[in-house]
Simulated assay, not measured.
Amino acid sequence: MISTASNVLLEAFSHNAFEKFLVGEPPYFFHAKNDNEEPQNVSQAFYTLIIPYWNLTKDIDFPKRFSSALYQLLDTYPDKNRAIYVAHEWIWCYKYFFDKNILNSSEYYRELFEVDLSQVAYLLKSLIEENKEGLINDHRWAGRSWNSQNGMWGPLLKVSETVRDKLGGPNFVPTNK
């Protein structure tokens, strides 16, 4: 069984705050060992919370809840660059684990939920294009100078292309690259 007391995902669900969990707002930040500062530890949260939740519940509403929360986050979160960065990470992570599901018949990944991310990808692409200059000048997280010469823009572009070209995910590669 999944413990509610130590599970920030379930806490977020119980407080109707799934978007806050996705973006890593306290108290919904998932604490995990990570070498780099991130707004939310997406990969660890997906592997440690999302997959077990799905494997246990097979909640038929979860895929729609996931895509709706990502869309809402992109549409309304005041820090647009943070919303873009985090939504980007969640989509990459989902497609990565979904690809593992296809390539690896491991019990843990078996039957990972399918979700339509087309509307989220459309909005994400639009926001990336609109916020290009701000993303280039944003040196948080993957945009730090040790990782990128052009702020968040370069890492976001690289991951967008990876999701589209290597993971068969939705296309949110900006046209103004």
Score class of each variant (00 low, 15 high):
Ser68Tyr: 11
Ala69Pro: 08
Ala69Thr: 02
Ala69Met: 10
Ala69Ile: 06
Ala69Lys: 08
Leu70Ala: 00
Tyr71Gly: 10
Tyr71Pro: 12
Tyr71Lys: 14
Gln72Tyr: 04
Gln72Pro: 04
Gln72Val: 15
Leu73Arg: 03
Leu73His: 06
Leu74Gln: 02
Asp75His: 15
Asp75Ser: 13
Asp75Lys: 15
Thr76Ser: 02
Thr76Cys: 10
Thr76Arg: 03
Asp79Leu: 05
Asp79Tyr: 05
Asp79Glu: 03
Asn81Glu: 06
Asn81Thr: 11
Arg82Gln: 12
Arg82Ile: 09
Arg82Trp: 12
Ala83Tyr: 02
Ile84Pro: 02
Tyr85Trp: 12
Ala87Tyr: 06
His88Lys: 09
Glu89Lys: 11
Glu89Tyr: 09
Trp90Arg: 01
Trp90Asp: 00
Trp90Lys: 06
Ile91Gln: 02
Ile91Glu: 04
Ile91Asp: 06
Ile91Trp: 01
Ile91Asn: 02
Cys93Lys: 08
Cys93Gln: 05
Cys93Thr: 07
Tyr94Glu: 07
Tyr94Arg: 05
Lys95Asn: 04
Tyr96Asn: 00
Tyr96His: 07
Tyr96Arg: 09
Tyr96Thr: 05
Phe97Arg: 03
Phe97Glu: 09
Phe97His: 09
Phe97Gly: 08
Phe98Val: 14
Asp99His: 14
Asp99Val: 14
Lys100Thr: 14
Lys100Ile: 15
Asn101Ile: 15
Asn101Ser: 12
Asn101Gly: 12
Asn101Trp: 12
Asn101His: 13
Ile102Met: 13
Ile102His: 10
Ile102Glu: 07
Leu103Val: 15
Leu103Tyr: 13
Leu103Lys: 15
Asn104Phe: 15
Asn104Tyr: 15
Ser105Pro: 08
Ser105Met: 07
Ser105Lys: 09
Ser105His: 10
Ser105Arg: 10
Ser106Thr: 06
Ser106Ala: 10
Tyr108Ala: 09
Tyr109Val: 04
Tyr109Thr: 07
Arg110Gln: 02
Glu111Cys: 08
Glu111Arg: 02
Leu112Pro: 00
Leu112Met: 00
Leu112Ser: 00
Glu114Asp: 11
Val115Ile: 04
Asp116Ile: 13
Asp116Asn: 11
Asp116Pro: 07
Leu117Glu: 00
Leu117Lys: 09
Leu117Trp: 01
Leu117Gly: 03
Ser118Trp: 10
Ser118His: 12
Ser118Arg: 13
Ser118Ala: 13
Gln119Trp: 08
Gln119Glu: 13
Gln119His: 10
Gln119Asp: 01
Gln119Arg: 10
Val120Trp: 08
Val120Lys: 07
Ala121Tyr: 03
Tyr122Trp: 12
Tyr122Ala: 13
Leu123Asn: 07
Leu124Tyr: 01
Lys125Asn: 08
Lys125Val: 02
Lys125Ile: 13
Lys125Glu: 10
Lys125Arg: 10
Ser126Leu: 06
Ser126Glu: 07
Ser126Gln: 01
Leu127Gly: 06
Ile128Asn: 01
Ile128Gln: 09
Glu129Met: 13
Glu129Trp: 09
